[in-house]
Write a protein that binds this DNA or RNA. Sequence first.
RNA 1: CGGGGCGUAGCGCAGUCUGGUAGCGCGCACGGUUCGGGACCGUGAAGUCGAAGGUUCAAAUCCUUUCGCCCCGACCA
Length: 557
Amino acid sequence: MRFTSMLIPTLRETPSEATAVSHKLMLRAGYVRQLAAGLYVYLPLGWRVLTKINGILREEMDAIGAQEVSMPVLQPSEPWELTGRWSDIKEEMFRLKDRGGRDMCLGMTHEEIMTWLAAREIHSYRQMPQIWYQIQTKLRDEARPKSGVLRTREFLMKDSYSFDISQEGLEKSYKLHADAYHRIFSRCGLRFWQVQSDTGMMGGAAAHEFMAPSPSGEDDIVLCPKCGYSANVEIAGSTPPAVQSENAPFEDVHTPEKRTVEEVSRFLKKKPGNFIKSILVMAESGPVLALVRGDQQLHEKKLQRITGPFRPAHKDEVRDTLGVEAGFIGPIGHKVRIIADPVLREGDYISGANRKDYHTQGVRAGAHFQAEWQDIHAAQAGDMCPECGSPVSMEKAIEIGNIFQLGTKYSAPLNAVFLDESGSERPIIMGSYGIGPARIAAAAIEQNHDKDGIIWPESIAPFDVEIIPVSMENREIVELADKLHSELSGMGLDVLVDDRDERAGVKFKDADLIGIPRHIVIGEKNLKDGFIELKDRRTRQSERLRPEKVLARSREK
RNA sequence: CGGGGCGUAGCGCAGUCUGGUAGCGCGCACGGUUCGGGACCGUGAAGUCGAAGGUUCAAAUCCUUUCGCCCCGACCA
């Protein structure tokens, strides 16, 4: 491919709206353009990368016996009504009516439609297991599209669905996917972790996410370097390090105008870990008082799994419910539901005294208050691993894939049933599995770049080699570039020749930006001696070689 | 949805406070010189100043409304 016949609009300056590294580089190097918030055009280079990623996805999905299909993006409401998601999902679903006034939506995922198909076509245990997948556009009216292609309103997703006759079968399909995902992400050149994750509204028994560490990631993951425990912070267990117990007498202390743990701890010269942080929230069932240690944070997702949806209490609600203003509330003497983090079981603490300008010290669980004990704190670096007790670390990560054991959450309401060997009717046991190709591309850039641009892993680079004829005036150079171009292409390599009539510096800068892993530089001086240069984008090391040698070496690959 | 920021030429920005002929750099076009890490000189094209309404002799600038984009948070099936 010739540079001059391809649209590669590189930018010298970074458009101001970009903050994530991958976003900046994709814009500058001419891979994508933004149409509107969360809507991106993939330019030729960008599309080539996605095509390569999708190729890997197809190979690995096919290898586990999955079959590719294609489902409509435009869907009728009925299957969604049957599973309850038509009403469970709110503004995030794009909805419309057709000319007949029928409710329709744009697919944000395809459990309903895949299950609809299974309900029609799978009748017997003899037909299973099945795995169906597609690489299809999804639409979600995201509350906040962000970070370039990392969170968009329209995006490509490889989604697959397994259909089994039993939980054991599901676990097998699940394992097949997990293994395939490891191969996929490894082949794409990513550093990644498989972590335990929340099943969310997908429901079901088990779920894992595949996470590529990156500062641009939206998720926090907890990792134990010792035993390999890894989990999304949304569900990660951890034991906060023990704090020295004060053995303080049980009594109120005057703390005028000191409300937050930080203020009171500084005022009393005690560590935040010696405090109980009391947070009142309003759940649908009523007020709930959540307690965590002062140096810990309440994790709202964890609490929500226990109480259902909630919101923080307003100031007047705190007063009405607990009889004291926010800042001085504590767990003692209330009849509201109290949920406390287990770390508070032991030791004595300082909490709000339930009267203005006072805190109580020497507060002990059991003796002074009762609570439901539930893990509701957010794990933080330095906490102890729930499996082996060593300190855990935290990383920001991009969710590049997920796998869910769904069970019968979709098959039951959509009546996707089969007859088992004994002739009795049972719901199909399902799993669902997703990968975002654009996120793979973005994560690859986040993990592989330098100050000059992208450094693509070979497997997903838009081209294998870029040939850089340093001058287009020199006939010999141009002829050799053409010759290498056609011979390397003939060997099955994807080759880009920068045949622009630009100065060498411009070509070098753009080549570094675009990030093709190998560059062949053809310059006058070297060519006079019969040499060209083969340059590695990552290491920047350059070798002087005879042109034939380059061909021979490429043939080996 | 809450908080913050920004909309001026393709891109990056100045001009807005204090109203008075719309600017700079890059890019683009043409001519010339140059040619191994984003060259230089000259000439030139290109802007309903996001939109609508208002105030004013006069609005990019002041007022009102509105749309869009980005960031933080909430949300993320």
